[in-house]
Design a protein around this nucleic acid. Structure first.
Length: 311
DNA sequence: AAACCCAGCAACCGCTCTGTA
DNA sequence: ATACAGAGCGGTTGCTGGGTT
């Protein structure tokens, strides 16, 4: 009785079969990449229009770099654009031929997890050291939460606050800042050490290039270049509330300060490293790169950078 | 060899945006 | 001006394969 109706209402989910891809491709050939809902209404596939569109965009579209790891150059672009646009993956993906928003999103997510894992390892090391004397209260803060402002090109503030929780870090393991030499030379698993070195290599290449050419990025040809000066869009230590925002507690309690060996070695005064002389860069190369690798959420409650479109 | 862990990926869900009647 | 449908986007989830124990 209801068999036919039930069949019509049935929506297939999960992995796509080759036959389904074929049907979808035929539809696009005939009608172009649109009218996704009609695929189901015509009985061609038992997938939702959304699902069909997603399949086309992410897997079937021509010229996709499926199964291809992000190149160093692509990583640079993603990191830079994420700092400017925030999590607007579709926009970021539009700068990367052959990459989809899903690709970029997954890449970023993996990268964040990797960095969080590295930092967690260092935090655990630090905590075990500090436990011998005193347990810092801030280590027990469950999560970092701050009102999030969009860093999109429009610059509009997000209406709803978002938590900046860190994946793979349980509530008792809040990220701590550790000097890079400690991080690399301490008990990091060798695989993590390799990751750290890879990340640093990436940024070293980035910085040593001074200005990266992105001929394929149309918007950037309108006066905006990815020069090191644009890194000023990222808050730096000289900003008044930086330490307070980052560490809402008395850091001196832990002996953390510019003079302290454990301090924030990557928070140098402007000019000393980030955009300074080659010697300065050489002296601080590791910590400098590490600064860029901090979770971007960390800066979300600060004023968004100027929109590229407004520059 | 088996069990387990985990990173990466594919796909879904819910919300917002946009076009149109 | 409004309602509706389709499209797009970002967040999240679940699966899979490779690595480790």
């Amino acid at each position: 009785m209801h068999g036919k109706k039930e069949q019509e209402e049935y929506i297939r989910k999960g992995q796509w079969e080759a036959e389904e891809d074929e049907v979808l491709l035929n539809h696009v050939k005939k009608y172009g990449p649109r009218d996704w809902s009609s695929i189901r209404s015509k009985g061609l596939l038992q997938r939702t229009g959304k699902s069909c569109r997603l399949r086309w965009v992410n897997k079937l579209r021509p010229n996709l770099k499926n199964g291809c790891k992000f190149s160093l150059e692509e990583e640079r672009v993603v990191i830079e654009l994420q700092a400017q646009f925030g999590n607007r993956w579709a926009k970021i993906a539009s700068y990367l031929p052959g990459r989809t928003d899903n690709d970029v999103k997954n890449f970023w997510s993996s990268r964040q997890k990797r960095l969080a894992r590295i930092l967690q390892t260092s935090a655990t090391t630090f905590r075990s050291q500090k436990n011998k004397t005193k347990v810092p209260s801030f280590l027990d803060v469950p999560t970092l939460e701050a009102p999030k402002f969009s860093s999109s090109s429009e610059g509009e503030p997000s209406s709803k606050p978002q938590t900046c929780t860190l994946p793979y870090i349980d509530n008792s393991e809040v990220i701590q800042m550790v000097s890079l030499p400690d991080l690399i030379k301490s008990e990091l698993p060798s695989s993590d050490t390799i990751h750290v070195e890879q990340e640093f290599t990436l940024f070293e290449n980035y910085k040593s290039t001074e200005q990266i050419a992105f001929p394929q990025i149309p918007e950037l040809q309108n006066g905006l270049t990815f020069s090191m000066e644009n890194q000023d869009l990222v808050p730096t230590i000289e900003e008044p509330c930086f330490i307070e925002d980052l560490c809402p507690f008395d850091v001196s309690e832990f002996g953390i300060g510019p003079q302290h060996p454990f301090g924030f070695p990557f928070f140098e005064p402007p000019g000393s490293c980030r955009f300074g002389t080659r010697d300065a860069i050489d002296n601080f190369k590791i910590s400098d790169s590490f600064f860029d690798d901090l979770p971007v959420d960390m800066f979300d409650h600060m004023d968004p950078p100027a929109s590229p479109s407004n520059l």
